[in-house]
Structures are given as structure tokens and as C-alpha cells.
Design a protein around this nucleic acid. Structure first.
Length: 944
DNA sequence: GCGCTGATAAACAAGC
DNA sequence: TGCTTGTTTATCAGCG
């Protein structure tokens, strides 16, 4: 639902406003002292044309006037339009709303929590009042006659305009037409007009600001002690404003009136009962990272990025989170507010050509300035202020917080839903609500709790219809990591956080909360941090989690290592079996003509299931041809090596060949490709195959030479060779067109090396290559070449043979911030990210399937893999289990003994593998470098 | 079939 | 009294 915020040009009706009445609806920020009066009217308009008052603020005895209660509730005045405010017979401004007001606006916006105020002032009541008013106006329609009279003395006005309203109602003029006055008599003196008004307000606010600090989104939530319902989509200030308004009103009432006002307010006979209003089944909460206080409305920054700009009425082509009106002085995308994770603060980036004023300092286009609490911003003629909740909370912290927090979430799609979703919790300290005159609305003091709204499929966004594939423990870990403070998170906050992180739980039926509690209690990853009220504040036992993750990592490594070792061993055996004949008459690999079907069996085995017996002959032939080609190309690539001994070259070739085969094979597996992938690749895309070979050679070179030589061949040249090779089919002889520059000093191996010829690192002329040296690859020592846990799924990758200067190992999921918000990614962040790291960018991901790859590979050669695996047999099961759960970030641990046992085993085993694993981690990271250096040749194989 | 893990549900108690 | 919170137990399913 597209929402549009419109700043309505404020009229001057407030210029001669009379003393404030009991209740005011204001557009100003709740933070602003009630004595401060903000002017201007504003409206937020939906695409549908619905509009709602942006904000209402209750001062002392707030009272929202409804159509019915106009006579009885003169406190609230709603002004219709500039210069023509709508007032009732009592001269109070009234709120005008379109008939087609869609409560869905509310439903999506209401994130309100009366937690902090509940004891003193039930924000829900306030919310209800406001919404009720809106609804009443909407449903019943406020007669125009109510809006006819304009009383300049009205202290407060909210002007609502439709999206197609008159231009005059639009925002260009931000002059403060709307005022808020406190009952006590903050009058017109505080009523400002035009720009100075805002400035004055801001100045006051700045003065009142005790301190500035940069809050972070997570902090905000905590600070608010609210459940973490941050809406992901567009921000619709209107509802938040209302809620915020109400909440703030309560706060102000509490803080400034010793909390008596709240009760007064609630008891106020004339006030419309909030029961009238469809209530959410939970107490609402405003969740926002920050807030933009305009003169006439408040914009809640509920995303980490918000666009501020101009959007014409009919132009929805571009996204504008904060519509500053049609003024041409404001660019469509004039500025953006975003959270800079690097600096840990919100920043304002000026996009519009006209720049903006930040704290009265002009900021030109293209500049980015940090946003601190109460930073003044002016775009065009519209000033506003950036407010961080933390400060707000600090300021409002005078009011005691009620530890009893009931999370709330309002999901109202439409008025019908509103009616269905009435669930209200009345704080013990609040008075029963006065029965509402509206027949359609419940008037019970405490309406029976209605079952949670059951969403129909259509009501649930597509992306939120499926349950996240993440365990509760992982979910909780993510949630707590993201939102918790040192004090921990209350259960309700955790609920809210989960809803925020995984909106599925906003829509699904209840019951998951029980699982959450179950997990919190049962899983040792979670601990009670501190007591708050009757409940605990939960936190993470990082030590336990770390240890657990470490164990899992080890297990994963072990599993992969074992799988790898098994595969290598099998290959070794096969290789030996088939290499014997080829070695007899072939001492020089250059002159080697007969293919060494070292991988033939492997390939055949891989594809055996897909190969009919009748095709064996062809398969063998293909494999033979393929292997021949690979060998030839490898020989070519390394023919003119320099400074590398035969053994080294042999080792390189061996590893390169193995890596290539495995890469291709694995990629084919992952893609479900049947047949002989190598052959297919060779036939269809030899360039690609050669690039893979080149990358493998380079990786193997770097590995074998321990980084001394990082690039032996140039992939581009390789591709060219491959092209030639393709043209010169059948491949019966090595392609040696490659410029042979054995004597040329080797260029510095660097990522940017882009020689179009094969780069040779040494000057020594190439020596004969002994094919038998390929067997080196299958030496048991190779078994130690296990994949990093991060790349667990890749049994054999080019990366694993690279020994380039390591780059920082990808952060494991323990960081907790890696989750993207999507449920699945959170849980599998560690492995999956690492996988992708080690693989290609194209996502073909020969090894991207995580444990699945490893397991599949392992299964191929499981039969005789143990001997070389160096893995304690006892761990087998644990590894398997771990592999199975590798996708999750953290798992519930029911059996500590089991984990500890596994740990002990791992500790013992770790001794022989740790260093290797660390190295492999680096290698895997390095593969990306190599891939990039190789001009896109990466370890991933794209078979198409 | 067994063991482990995770999810789900229910019962129950304590606190507000 | 009703609700929330926390604990415990039981059951079931998936997987190896």
C-alpha cells in the first residue's frame, strides 16, 4: 500500500488561537514540550486518497472529538484547511477525514506499545481514542457543518487533505499553522508562524536536549522497551504519529502532571471511549529507529534507509518515504537518511541539487552529514528535526516504566479487521473506559480477549506465508544478538524481535511463543540476565555459544575432511590402477599421448547411475578423450614453467587436475546434470574448462609453492588456447600455441597480472614431466586438505589448494549481525556465506550446497575412506549430525553430555588438523582472490 | 529400531 | 481473576 505523506500548508488560523483547551491534537513531536506549539497542518495521504491526521497530542486531558461528541468534547479541534479550519460549534478544530478512510493504514502502521506508560497511562486507550475518532469520523462522517466554523483561537488543529487536495493545502508553506497549547495556558505566545516557528521549536528542543548520542537501531528498540516491531516497508507516519502522539501524550501527562492527567484523561466523561475503536489484539508499539519531527507531522524512520523528497500527486514512479510536497525546490529524491553501520549512526545524504540545511549549515548536494539527535534539517522550506529515540526516551525516562510490558502489534488491514482485532489490555492503573456511544463498538471496560486474528492467505504477504527455515534457537540467537542490550531482552521483546526479523510470526497462529519460551528455558545458549518485573531479561550465553559453535565447526571440518579424504583416496586408488599403463612408456608428459584415465573412473563413478551399461563404451571413450584433453591442456599450461622442478610441476598438475575434475563434477551434481560433465564442458565450452584449469593450476601453484608463485598461467590465454583446441578437434595432441616465454623474467605475480601469455614465474626451462607424479595428489597427506567449515560443502575446490596470502576469514555467524533479516539467511549465514565466498559469484556454486556436497561426495567413497581420514571414528555420527544441522546458526542443545563428549573427541582430533584447517580457511578465502585475479575464473563451474 | 535433535503442545506454578 | 512468564514433560517427526 503506497502511502504518501503530505505536508499541508498551514494556515493562519492558529495565529490567533485561543488558549489551549483540555485536549489538543498537534502535529508536533511528542518530544517537544507541550508548551511548544507546532503549527501547520498536515496530512498523510494514501494512494487511495485516504488521509488521516498525522498526529495528535494530548496534553492534559486529551480528548478527541468525534462527530457525536463534538458538543461534549470540545477539547479537540481539527482544522480542516488553511484559512478555513474546521471547527465545531464550540470553535474547536475538528478532524476531517475522508469517507473512504482505510483502516488498513492503521493496521500496517500501528506498532505501539503502552509498555512504558501502561501503569500510568494506557497508551492503548489513547490509541484507541485516536483511532476511534478517526474511525468515527470515517464511518459516520463528520458533517461539514462541524467543519464550517473556524475559530482562530483554537489551539490545535489537524488538517487533513486528500491526496488530490488543493495545492494550497500542500506543504510548501511549512509555517506553523497548527499549534499546540497546553491547558495551563500556553497560548498564542507559543504559536509560531512560518519558518521561525519551526526554528524556535527546534531551538527549544535543542535546548532541552540534554545530550546527544547516536543511537543505533537496535538500541532504539531496547530503549523504548518495546517489542521490536519495525516495519520493513514504507513508513507511514500517519499512524505512528497518532500512536506516538498518544503515547507521548501519556508520557507528558505523566511527567508533567504527575500522572494524574492520564487518569483524568481516561476518566474524562466526555471522552470517547477507546473501546469504540477497533483495538489491536495486542498493545501497539511504535518501532522506529528514529523520527523526523516536522512541524505538522512526524515521520518515523522505521527502516535503515528513507528517501526524502518531492513526489507529485500522481507520480508514484519513484519511491519517496517522506514526501515533502510538490515544491519544485525540492528534488524528487532530495535527501536520504540511512544508517551507516560503519559509523554506527544515521546519516543524511543530500541528493537534491538545492542542498539542504543541517543545523543551519548549508549542505550541498552530494554531501553526507551525520545525524545526531535533534539535528535540524531543512529541505526547501520545510524544516524538521531528526530525533533519536534514545534521547527521547532519556528525556521521558522521568516517568517510571512499567515493567509489565505487553507486546503489541496491530495488523489491521481494513476496518473489518480492526473490528476483529480488538484486543485490549487495560493496565491495572487505568480506569475503566467510559461506555462508548457508538453502537457498533464494544464498550466493555475490559472486552474479552479475542482470539488472535487469523489471517487469510490473501492477507499475508507472499514472502511471509512460509515458516522460516530456521530453528527457534537460531532465531532467538539472532534476535537477541540484534536487539538485546546488556540488560537482556524481555520475553515480549523477544517475541517482537522475532516478529520483526521473521514477519511470518506476525501472521501465523500463536503457539510459537510457547516454543520460544521452551527454547529459552531449555537451551543453554540463553541465559537470564536480569530480572525485570515478574519476568526475566534474556540474553545469550556467548561463552556457551562460542564453544558450541567451535565444536560444530570442528565437527563440520572433520566431516568434510573425512569426506574429502575418502574421495581422494578413492581417486588415488583409481588413479593408480589406471595410471600404471600410462606410465610405462611415458616419462615425459609433454610427449605423453595416451591419456591417463586417472579420473575416468571417478567420473564414471560419479555418473555411473546415469549411464546405462550400453553406454559404457562411449563413456569410457569420452572420459578418455576428456582426460586426455585435460592433461594436454595442463601440460601446455605448465610446459614452460620456470624455476619449478618437475616434482613441483607434477604436484601442481596433479592438484590442478583433481581440482578441475572435482569442480566440474561437483558443479554438475549440484545442477543435476547427468552425463559426463567434463566431456560436455570440454565439447561445448572448452574456454570455460580451460579457465577452470588455469585457475586450478594457479591455485595449485600457489599452494605447492606456498605462495611463492601465485599465478602460473593466465586464464585468458588459457581460454584462447581452449578456443584453439576446440577448433582443432579432435584433440590428439597438446596445444602448444601458447607463447612460450620461458626465458622471460617472470612478472610479479599479482592480481592484476594480465599478460596475454602464460605467465611463467621462473626462468628455468621446463623439464620433462613425469605423469606418474600425478599420484602425488593421492598421497594420504592430501587428506589433510580439508575444507574449512566455512566451505564445508566443497569437498574439493580450487580454493583448497591455494595458498595465497590469506585475507580475513569470513566472519562466522557468531557475529550475529550478518543476518539479512530474512529468516533463512540468518541461520545459515555462517556456512552459506562462506560457501559463496569460496565459490563463484555466479552462484553456480559447485560447492555452495553446503554439507550436501560434502556428504554426497563422501558417500561416493565412503566405503574405504576411513583409513586416510585421520578422523576419529567416534565422530562420524557427530559429524553427520552436525552436517545435517550446519544450516542453522545455533541449535538447541538438549543433551549437554553429548556435546561435551563430542568436544573431547574433537579436541583430541583437533591437534592434527588445526593448523591445516586454519590454512585451508585462508586458502578458501584466497580462492576468491585468485578467481578475481584470473579475470573471472573462479572455482565455480558454470556448466551450461 | 535406536538415538538425537527439533518442534509442538500441554500442564503447572509463580508473579503481577 | 486473568494474564504472562517460566519450567517441565510428553509426543511426534526427521534424520542418520
Amino acid at each position: 500500500m503506497d502511502r504518501e505523506m503530505t505536508i499541508v500548508e498551514s494556515g493562519n488560523h492558529l495565529g490567533a488561537s485561543s488558549p489551549a483547551t483540555d485536549m489538543q491534537i498537534t502535529m508536533n513531536s511528542p518530544l517537544i514540550n507541550e508548551h511548544e506549539i507546532k503549527g501547520t497542518t498536515e496530512s498523510i495521504t494514501e494512494s487511495s486518497g485516504n488521509e488521516v491526521p498525522m498526529e495528535a497530542k494530548q496534553a492534559n486531558s486529551p480528548h478527541i472529538e468525534t462527530g457525536e461528541g463534538l458538543s461534549k468534547s470540545p477539547d479537540i479541534s481539527i482544522e480542516k484547511e488553511i484559512g478555513n479550519p474546521i471547527t465545531d460549534e464550540n470553535g474547536n478544530l475538528k478532524l476531517e477525514l475522508p469517507d473512504n478512510l482505510d483502516n488498513a493504514d492503521f493496521s500496517k502502521l500501528l506498532e505501539f506499545d503502552a509498555k512504558n506508560d501502561e501503569a500510568l497511562f494506557n497508551s492503548n486507550d489513547l490509541l484507541s481514542q485516536t483511532m476511534n475518532t478517526v474511525n468515527e469520523i470515517n464511518i459516520d462522517g463528520i458533517p461539514d457543518d462541524h467543519n464550517e466554523e473556524v475559530t482562530p483561537k483554537d489551539s490545535t488543529s489537524i488538517e487533513a487533505v486528500t491526496s488530490h487536495g488543493d495545492e494550497k493545502e500542500k506543504t510548501q508553506d511549512t509555517s506553523g499553522a497548527m499549534k499546540v497549547e497546553e491547558m495551563e495556558g500556553f497560548e498564542e505566545s507559543s504559536i509560531k508562524t512560518d519558518q521561525p516557528t519551526a526554528d524556535a521549536i527546534y531551538a527549544q528542543k535543542n535546548e532541552s536536549s540534554a545530550e546527544e548520542n547516536d543511537g543505533t537501531p537496535p538500541t532504539i528498540i531496547i530503549e523504548k522497551d518495546n517489542p521490536l516491531h519495525t516495519r520493513n516497508n514504507s513508513i507511514t507516519p500517519i499512524m505512528f504519529q497518532q500512536h506516538e502522539l498518544l503515547a507521548q501524550a501519556s508520557q507528558h501527562s505523566v511527567t508533567e502532571n504527575n500522572s494524574t492527567d492520564a487518569e483524568t484523561f481516561e476518566r474524562k466523561p466526555s471522552e470517547p471511549s477507546n473501546e469504540n475503536l477497533p483495538l489491536p489484539n495486542e498493545q501497539p508499539t511504535i518501532f522506529a529507529y528514529a523520527r523526523l519531527d516536522f512541524q505538522s507531522f512526524t515521520f518515523y524512520v522505521q527502516t535503515l534507509h528513507a528517501i526524502i523528497g518531492r513526489r507529485s500527486e500522481n507520480d508514484f514512479s519513484h519511491k519517496v518515504d517522506v514526501n515533502l510536497g510538490p515544491s519544485k525546490s525540492i528534488s524528487r529524491r532530495h535527501a536520504q537518511i540511512f544508517y551507516n553501520f560503519g559509523t554506527g549512526r544515521f546519516e543524511l545524504s543530500i541528493i537534491g541539487k538545492n542542498g539542504a540545511f543541517v543545523d543551519d549549515i548549508f549542505v550541498e548536494k552530494g554531501n553526507t552529514v551525520p545525524l545526531r539527535n535533534r539535528t535540524k534539517i531543512q529541505i526547501g522550506q520545510i524544516p524538521f528535526q531528526f530525533i533519536l529515540p534514545e534521547q527521547e526516551r532519556n528525556e521521558d525516562s522521568k516517568s517510571p516504566e512499567n515493567p509489565d510490558i505487553t507486546e503489541s502489534e496491530i495488523k489491521l488491514k481494513d476496518p473489518k479487521k480492526n473490528e476483529l482485532k480488538s484486543k485490549k489490555k487495560v493496565s491495572t492503573g487505568t480506569k475503566p473506559k467510559k461506555p462508548q456511544a457508538k453502537p457498533a463498538v464494544k464498550k466493555d471496560k475490559k472486552p474479552p480477549k479475542l482470539p488472535k486474528k487469523v489471517y487469510t492467505l490473501e492477507e499475508i504477504p507472499l514472502e511471509y506465508r512460509t515458516k522460516p527455515t530456521i530453528s527457534y534457537s537460531a532465531m532467538l540467537t539472532t534476535c537477541i544478538r540484534k536487539y538485546s542490550t546488556a540488560k537482556g531482552m524481555s520475553l515480549s521483546e523477544i517475541y517482537a524481535g522475532i516478529r520483526e526479523l521473521f514477519p511470518y510470526y506476525k501472521y501465523c497462529a500463536d503457539g510459537w511463543q510457547s516454543s520460544v519460551r521452551h527454547n529459552l528455558s531449555l537451551n543453554k545458549s540463553f541465559r537470564k540476565v536480569s530480572k525485570e518485573g515478574k519476568g526475566w531479561l534474556w540474553g545469550l550465553d556467548e561463552e556457551y555459544i562460542t564453544e558450541r559453535e567451535r565444536q560444530k565447526k570442528k565437527q563440520s571440518e572433520m566431516a568434510i575432511a573425512k569426506a574429502h579424504a575418502a574421495q581422494l583416496k578413492l581417486e588415488q586408488q583409481q588413479h593408480r590402477q589406471q595410471q600404471v599403463p600410462s606410465q610405462k612408456g611415458k616419462k615425459d608428459i609433454v610427449s605423453q599421448k595416451s591419456p591417463v584415465p586417472a579420473r575416468k573412473q571417478n567420473i564414471s563413478q560419479t555418473l555411473a547411475a546415469n549411464r546405462a551399461a550400453s553406454n559404457k563404451k562411449n563413456t569410457a571413450s569420452d572420459n578418455q578423450r576428456t582426460m586426455k584433453y585435460l592433461q594436454e591442456q595442463l601440460v601446455i599450461l605448465t610446459r614452460d614453467r620456470k624455476g619449478l622442478s618437475k616434482q613441483v610441476i607434477a604436484a601442481i598438475l596433479t592438484q590442478a587436475l583433481a581440482m578441475t575434475i572435482n569442480q566440474v563434477t561437483q558443479a554438475a551434481k549440484n545442477k543435476g546434470i547427468t552425463g559426463n560433465p567434463l566431456t560436455a564442458l570440454m565439447d561445448k565450452n572448452p574456454q570455460h574448462l580451460n579457465l577452470i584449469l588455469a585457475a586450478a593450476v594457479n591455485a595449485a601453484t600457489a599452494k605447492v609453492t606456498k605462495g611463492e608463485v601465485k599465478q602460473l598461467v593466465n586464464p585468458e590465454t588459457t581460454a584462447a588456447l581452449a578456443a584453439k583446441a576446440q577448433n582443432s578437434k579432435p584433440i590428439t595432441q597438446p596445444i602448444v600455441q601458447t607463447p612460450n616465454v620461458p626465458e622471460r623474467p617472470a612478472p610479479q605475480p599479482s592480481a592484476s597480472a594480465s599478460s596475454h601469455s602464460i605467465n611463467y614465474m621462473h626462468d628455468k626451462p621446463p623439464g620433462p614431466f613425469d605423469p606418474s607424479s600425478l599420484s602425488r595428489f593421492f598421497q594420504p597427506r592430501q587428506n589433510a586438505r580439508v575444507a574449512s567449515p566455512a566451505t564445508a560443502p566443497v569437498p574439493v575446490t580450487i580454493a583448497q589448494s591455494i595458498d595465497l596470502p590469506p585475507k580475513p576469514t569470513p566472519t562466522q555467524n557468531s557475529g550475529g549481525e550478518s543476518e539479512s533479516g530474512s529468516s533463512s539467511s540468518t541461520a545459515s549465514s555462517s556456512e552459506s556465506e562462506s560457501d559463496s565466498d569460496s565459490c563463484s559469484d555466479d552462484g553456480s556454486g559447485s560447492g555452495s550446497d553446503g554439507s550436501g556436497d560434502g556428504s554426497s561426495t563422501s558417500s561416493e567413497s565412503e566405503s574405504d575412506s576411513d583409513s586416510g581420514s585421520e578422523i576419529d571414528e567416534k565422530e562420524d555420527k557427530g559429524q553427520s549430525e552436525n552436517a545435517r544441522h550446519n544450516d542453522t546458526e545455533d541449535d538447541v542443545v538438549h543433551n549437554n553430555d553429548g556435546s561435551s563428549n563430542g568436544h573431547d573427541t574433537l579436541e583430541t582430533d583437533e591437534e592434527g588438523h588445526d593448523s591445516k584447517r586454519r590454512k585451508i580457511d585462508e586458502e578458501i578465502d584466497s580462492v576468491n582472490i585468485v578467481s578475481e585475479e584470473n579475470g573471472g575464473t573462479d572455482s565455480n563451474i558454470n556448466i551450461s
